[in-house]
């Protein structure tokens, strides 16, 4: 393939981007000012750029199609890619703060679309700070699933406010999730697992999902298998701690 010879960052055999050319920092400061473009409001999100086959820019009839899943801190995009074929008609977006990682996922999705015509049209990625800009992307109650897989643990107490799950941020996630929507969290750090569970447990707009429901949900299995981070944990024989909660109407 001539194109790939011109572009050494893509693998010659698979056409997929090669990770070594997208070396990323492990962390990015979520508190610093953002200098990437942010949509002014959810109606400014251009879906035709993300999902050209689902939402063409010209026709306004299909404006009913909305993003329903959000993978917050999607990393290298493993979960999105697994979910894409599991829910082929659902639009989903990954949000990632690190610019290089976002570039990698973008290339990866484009390569997958090229290699599998008709597939992977329902996933996309955007570089943003989800802790600040969730309301800029999603209307009230728009989402049905949100994913927080292996988030940065931020061990130091003074950095706890950088954690992506906190009581105050759950208010915003509860706003973006429709009633009945599900929030999935998993980590290999026990301390963070306890923290996330405690935040969700004490929040009036979330309730724990029963064991039976967890068993029946095909997405739950992906939490500990689909992402690059979970595979790393599995390789090292590490433990994982998950918390899956449903958005409910608060008791008045």
């Amino acid at each position: 393939m001539l194109e790939n010879e011109a572009n050494p960052t893509l693998s010659k055999s698979t056409g997929l981007p090669r990770k070594r050319f997208y070396r990323a920092r492990a962390h990015s400061n979520p508190l610093s000012d953002s200098h990437f473009p942010v949509p002014t409001s959810p109606c400014h999100v251009n879906l035709s750029l993300h999902f050209p086959q689902f939402c063409s820019s010209s026709d306004q009839i299909d404006s009913s199609k909305k993003i329903q899943f959000a993978d917050i801190g999607c990393g290298f995009g493993g979960l999105l890619i697994s979910l894409s074929t599991l829910f082929p008609d659902t639009l989903m977006i990954g949000m990632e703060l690190r610019d290089k990682v976002t570039e990698y996922v973008k290339e990866r999705i484009l390569a997958l679309r090229l290699a599998n015509p008709g597939q992977y049209q329902n996933i996309s990625v955007v570089r943003t700070n989800s802790m600040k800009y969730i309301p800029n992307f999603f209307e009230k109650g728009q989402l049905s699933k949100m994913f927080f897989l292996f988030p940065d643990p931020h061990f130091k107490e003074k950095n706890h406010r950088r954690r992506v799950i906190s009581t105050h941020l759950l208010d915003e996630y509860a706003y973006a999730l429709g009633v009945g929507g599900i929030i999935y969290t998993i980590t290999d750090v026990e301390e963070l697992g306890d923290w996330m569970k405690a935040c969700l447990e004490s929040h009036p707009m979330f309730e724990a999902i029963t064991e039976e429901e967890l068993e029946a949900d095909p997405v739950v299995k992906l939490l500990s298998s689909a992402t690059e981070e979970s595979q790393k944990v599995a390789r090292n024989g590490g433990q994982t701690f998950q918390a899956v909660y449903r958005r409910i109407m608060p008791a008045t």
Binding site: T40, S41, P135, N136, K140, D171, E172, A174, P250
Partner: peptide, 10 residues
């Protein structure tokens, strides 16, 4: 206060 009524964005 956990229930957000709306965001006014513009």
């Amino acid at each position: 206060a956990h229930e957000i009524q709306s965001f006014c964005l513009g």
